[in-house]
């Protein structure tokens, strides 16, 4: 495993991400995109979950689907920026259990969002009125998962065991 980390950390792309070759602002700008992506992805998810829980009841639930392209663009931004950050510091992330907790929370939250998008937001009977209890519980679970992903992500800066293998 360590050999793989060393190979990644000495690659030109890894050096570029860490700002050790070329542009010294590469790492801060990647982090900025990761924060903006978080805001729009989680923001759209929170709006959908909030509406499912009964906030803003005059908003036809299905119409919120129109914000999903924003969330998907934000997801693409965060997958790309996240992979770049991982290439920059593979040891730091992959030797920290908190990183896997973050990924698990995101995977479950995205699965949840996908289910809402295809099974709830597409069904006109849910456009108005109170949603089934199970659906509301899944919306609450989604909020908890996004919050956990954010906490885990922020803790990555504080809980790592090893910064680099080189």
């Amino acid at each position: 495993m360590e050999a793989l980390f060393i190979w990644i950390e000495t690659s030109p792309l890894s050096l570029w991400v860490r700002g050790e070759s070329g542009w010294h602002m590469a790492f801060p700008i990647i982090i900025v995109f990761h924060a903006l992506g978080m805001g729009f992805l989680v923001g759209v998810a929170l709006a959908i979950n909030g509406r499912v829980l009964g906030l803003a009841p005059q908003v036809p639930l299905g119409k919120l689907r129109q914000f999903l392209p924003v969330a998907m663009l934000a997801l693409v931004v965060n997958v790309i920026s996240g992979i770049l950050l991982l290439i920059g510091y593979p040891t730091k992330a992959l030797t920290n259990p908190v990183f896997y907790i973050k990924l698990l929370c995101i995977a479950l939250a995205l699965w949840n969002l996908r289910w809402f998008s295809y099974s709830v937001l597409t069904n006109p009977i849910y456009d108005h009125g109170v949603l089934p209890q199970k659906t509301r519980q899944l919306a609450t679970a989604s909020i908890v998962l996004w919050a956990s992903a954010i906490i885990a992500g922020r803790l990555l800066a504080y809980t790592y065991n090893n910064m680099m293998s080189i």
Partner: peptide
């Protein structure tokens, strides 16, 4: 602070 940011963007 990050969660507050998400609430702001989401509203």
């Amino acid at each position: 602070h990050f969660m507050g940011l998400c609430l702001l963007v989401g509203s």
